[in-house]
Design a protein around this nucleic acid. Sequence first.
DNA 1: CCCTGATTCGC
DNA 2: GCGAATCAGG
Length: 221
Amino acid sequence: MSWTDERIEKLTKMWESGSTASQIAEELGGVSRNAVIGKAHRLGLKARPSPVKEKPAKVADEAPKPKPKVDPKPKVEAAPRPAAPAPAPRAAAPAQPQQAAQQPLPPSRHPRIVSVGPGGFLRQGPGDQQPPIPPAPPRRLVPAKPSTDIEGKTSLLDLNERICRWPMGHPGEPDFHFCGDKVNPGFPYCVEHCGRAYQAQLPRGARRPPPPLPFGGPRVR
DNA sequence: CCCTGATTCGC
DNA sequence: GCGAATCAGG
């Protein structure tokens, strides 16, 4: 793929509107993330918040500390790099007033639509990405109305020490509820369900031994 | 490890 | 000019 005017324009818009290089590359298609970044730099679009911290740029008084890292490949290039010897090279970029991110912006600033993204959402400039703080509307919390098929049934919230909590149906089913009868004192269930929950221990002789499984048979839980 | 952008350098 | 490889950080 070549960089046609259209593609360059798209790249520029997306780049300036804050899309990541990956997103741009995906949108354009046929190019890699690196290609996008490389092109963007060649176009002079750089200077965006990068995960890589900018140079220390300590305030001019202490040793500049020229990074003792050994350069594996010494450049022929001497020092034509305009990489500001002055402190804070990135912040000095006159392009976007992005340093005002923490400052409350004047209300006169209205969002500037930069482009229309896939799906129709409107992209905005990096400086305009201050989403309005949604005001918490004062409202009273109203208890949710239980669905009608649970109406009159004993729900989880209705359970207490005195009512039978024997499940009726299965959790997740629309009409799942609990027995709700008066409890058998000292037990979590009513008399009827206690009879199902607690089986009398049979005398040893009357106990039916578990059927022997064939060797190697399937495990049963 | 995923992601990000920056930089380098052979083509 | 291009972009893969690499770097460096989140």
